[in-house]
């Protein structure tokens, strides 16, 4: 009986291990905590397996446990960004910045993203306040739908959308700051003729 249960659980969870770990790593910022967080999640999920309704969405179910485990056990230990300003965060932030600066030709805007290393992007993600980071990760990296995210983070759809849209803009600003720091762009504004 136990063995069968373990086998079933392994089969359910193994396809999602790498997603769980990646998300845990982006949330905790370090490998040890990420591994512990995944382990705690697996432990809770296995114990709660009877509550999981077969043929429903296991991936969303186990992510919900991951998120709750993070919030109750790990969040406090993670350094949050000091103060995040939401001013000047307009739609198409990055595109408009690229449009306005001297260092890039019109033709290279599409190639601009090729400048970035993986670590720049991870660093940019890591710099977001965790509520925003989480929703961006769930949607843009893990591919969950708005409805799934709403259940995973236990928040209304409107909250999911506002955090996602704001989170994406914060991410764009953060990428812009990385680009400046790395010298891919300058802040010098084009003279309009």
């Amino acid at each position: 009986m136990t063995e069968q249960r373990q086998k079933e659980f392994s089969e359910l969870v193994e396809p999602h291990l790498s997603s769980l770990y990646s998300t845990a790593l982006r949330m905790t910022h370090n490998q040890n905590d990420a591994e512990d967080l995944v382990q705690d999640t697996l432990y809770k999920a296995f114990r709660a397996l009877d509550q999981f309704q077969r043929n429903t969405n296991f991936r969303a179910w186990v992510f919900r446990i991951l998120v709750n485990t993070f919030i109750t056990g790990y969040r406090k230990a993670v350094k949050q960004p000091q103060k995040v300003s939401y001013d000047d965060l307009e739609e198409f932030f990055l595109y408009k910045k690229l449009d306005d600066t001297v260092s890039l030709q019109e033709s290279s805007k599409e190639d601009f993203l090729d400048n970035f290393f993986d670590d720049d992007v991870k660093g940019a993600l890591d710099s977001l306040p965790y509520q925003f980071r989480l929703v961006v990760l769930l949607c843009d990296v893990e591919g969950f739908s708005y409805n799934e995210i709403s259940k995973i983070i236990d928040a209304p759809l409107g909250t999911v959308m506002s955090r996602l849209y704001r989170g994406r803009r914060l991410l764009q600003r953060s990428l812009w700051n990385y680009a400046k720091k790395r010298g891919y762009v300058t802040d010098e504004v084009k003279k309009r003729s």
Binding site: S18, E35, V38, F116, V121, V136
Partner: peptide, 17 residues
């Protein structure tokens, strides 16, 4: 963003856990 945030996952280690 999806492409660049891929992680090296210690799958075997997690399975052992």
């Amino acid at each position: 963003v999806q492409l660049k945030s891929k992680e090296e996952v210690p799958t075997e280690k997690l399975k052992r856990k």
